[in-house]
Design a binder for these strands. Structure first.
Length: 269
DNA sequence: AGTCACCTGATT
DNA sequence: AATCAGGTGACT
C-alpha cells in the first residue's frame, strides 16, 4: 500500500488518535517482524512507556516514547499501522500490537508480514537514517541537489527516483507518475538528462507528492481507510494497454530492477 | 546494475 | 500453476 503520501496519512492519523497513549502490553507473534529484538525483550522495553509523538521520516513511521527511545515502523508493501478500538479484536493479520491502557491497541496489520518494527535510542537516530536522502519537502531537497545526484548516476532515471538516497518517499507508482508528468522516458540514463528537464522533474516530484498527500489524508480519514480504491489521478501506473490520457497512445509496461514500469511511449522521451 | 528472497493473497 | 503486487536488503 504505502509510498510517502500513504505513510504520511497513516502517521497523521496516529498522531491525532494515539499521542500520549500509554502502552500496557505487547503482542509479537512473528519473530522476523521485530528482529533483532525478541518478543520478551521488546515487551519489556515498551510496557509502561507512553507515546509522546508520531513522526514520518521517508517511508518510516517513528513512535517516540517517553524514555529517549523510539519505535521505527516500516510498512514495506502491504503494511498498515493503526489504532483499533479494542485490543482483543485485532485482525488475524496483525503482526504486532501495542496494547494501550485504555483498552485500545496500536497495530501493525500486514497480510504479507513484510513490515518491520525496531526499537532505537534517540541518540542512534542519525546513524539509523544515514542512507536516507532528503525529505522532498525539506530545504535540503533543492533543484541543485537533485540535479547533482542525477548527474552522478548512470542508473535509469526511474531507478534513481526509487533509490531512497536521491530523495525519500517515491515508490513504484509516484516515480512512474512523476516521470509521465515530466515527459521523461523511465529508461533514460540519469546523468544524460539536461539540467532544465531535471529542474522540471524536481518541481513535479514535489507537486505530485503534495497532491497525493492531500488526497491520501482525505481518503484515509474516512471510514475504511484507503479501501475506497483510487484516490490519486493515476495516468500510467497499472494501465498497460490503455490509452494515454494526454495523447491516446497505448501505455507500455517494461521491467526495471525487477519491477514493472508504466509509461507513455509517445509523451515520454 | 541485475536478480532474488522475504511472505501472502489476488488474479490470470 | 504461474505471475504479479504501492519495498528493501542481500546477494551475484
Amino acid at each position: 500500500m504505502p509510498e510517502l503520501p500513504e505513510v504520511e496519512a497513516v502517521t497523521r492519523k496516529l498522531q491525532a488518535e494515539a499521542t500520549g497513549a500509554r502502552i500496557s502490553g505487547g503482542f509479537f507473534p512473528r519473530p522476523v517482524v521485530i528482529q533483532p529484538h525478541t518478543a520478551a525483550q521488546l515487551h519489556k522495553a515498551v510496557v509502561g512507556r507512553s507515546i509522546d509523538r508520531f513522526e514520518r521520516r521517508g517511508k518510516n513511521i517513528l513512535a517516540h516514547l517517553d524514555n529517549g527511545t523510539f519505535l521505527r515502523v516500516h510498512l514495506r508493501m502491504t503494511g498498515n499501522f493503526l489504532v483499533i478500538p479494542d485490543a482483543r479484536l485485532r485482525p488475524v493479520t496483525a503482526r504486532a500490537a501495542f496494547e494501550l491502557d485504555d483498552g485500545r491497541a496500536v497495530v501493525l496489520d500486514d497480510p504479507r508480514a513484510l513490515g518491520r518494527i525496531t526499537l532505537h535510542k534517540e541518540s542512534e537516530r542519525d546513524a539509523l537514517f544515514a542512507d536516507l536522502g532528503p525529505e522532498p519537502f525539506s530545504p535540503e531537497f533543492t533543484p541543485e541537489a537533485f540535479i547533482a545526484s542525477a548527474h552522478r548516476s548512470a542508473k535509469p532515471i526511474k531507478i534513481l527516483l526509487m533509490d531512497q538516497r536521491a530523495v525519500t518517499g517515491l515508490g513504484n507508482i509516484y516515480a512512474a507518475e512523476s516521470l509521465f508528468q515530466a515527459g521523461i522516458h523511465p529508461a533514460r540514463e540519469s546523468r544524460g538528462i539536461s539540467r532544465p528537464r531535471l529542474r522540471e522533474l524536481h518541481r513535479i516530484i514535489v507537486e505530485v507528492l503534495t497532491v497525493a498527500i492531500d488526497s491520501a489524508v482525505v481518503a484515509y480519514s474516512t471510514p475504511g481507510g484507503f479501501s475506497e480504491g483510487e484516490f490519486f489521478p493515476v495516468a500510467v501506473y497499472g494501465r498497460e494497454g490503455e490509452p494515454c490520457p494526454r495523447c491516446g497512445a497505448k501505455i507500455r509496461r517494461i521491467t526495471q530492477g525487477g519491477r514493472s514500469t508504466y509509461y507513455c511511449p509517445r509523451c515520454q522521451r
